[in-house]
């Protein structure tokens, strides 16, 4: 999968969001001097290739009451993670779910799953659900709550790269 200069222009033009007009793709295409059909073909290709994960709305968790979250971490048997990882990732209260390397002896955990809820209690209940799902394939777990945001900057594509 590769992206070219025109794809990058499209990314730069849409990463802030789509215009809220009846024909948003025609509007973006006109701004970029592209044909609407070409823009849509490129968006479809990028979506197929995984460059675009999805075109969707991202609600503000906090505004909808999802104010608590914790990074749950699990020590899952290596021969079971391919099977169990997708099941954890598919839970609707789990956002980012990844396999990462252990850092023994300090860090035995290889599955990371961010759990969201309306309260710390709810997050703990959901964490128990994940533990039940993992069952005996899991040798241990922990949860890390963020106590302070120390830095937060958006990840944005720099336009000079081409």
């Amino acid at each position: 999968m590769s992206i070219d200069t025109i794809d990058r222009t499209i990314i730069a033009a849409t990463q802030g969001g789509l215009p809220l007009v009846p024909e948003p793709y025609a509007a973006v295409a006109a701004d970029l001097g592209l044909d609407e059909g070409e823009l849509c073909c490129r968006l479809e290709r990028m979506q197929r290739d995984g460059v675009i994960r999805r075109i969707a709305v991202a609600p503000n968790h906090y505004a909808l009451g999802m104010t608590a979250n914790g990074m749950s971490v699990w020590d899952v048997a290596d021969d079971r993670i391919a099977d169990l990882g997708p099941q954890v990732g598919a839970l609707d209260f789990v956002s980012h779910c990844y396999e990462r390397p252990r850092a023994l002896p300090d860090w035995p955990y290889n599955l990371f799953a961010m759990i969201h809820g309306e309260s710390r209690d709810e997050v703990e209940q959901k964490r128990a659900q994940v533990a039940a799902l993992l069952g005996p394939a899991c040798r241990g777990g922990d949860i890390l709550y963020s106590t302070r945001i120390l830095k937060k900057t958006g990840l944005r594509l720099r336009q000079k790269e081409g």
Binding site: I3, L20, V51, I52, R53, P59, N60, A63, L157
Partner: peptide, 30 residues
């Protein structure tokens, strides 16, 4: 259609919507 667009505008304005559009995979972009 115009009701949908107006509601989206209002929710975006009130920051109930954080973002609406394509979500890019930062690694896939290089």
């Amino acid at each position: 259609e115009d009701d949908l667009i107006a509601r989206l505008e209002r929710m975006r304005e009130a920051r109930i919507i954080t973002r609406f559009g394509p979500f890019f995979d930062a690694e896939a972009m290089g």
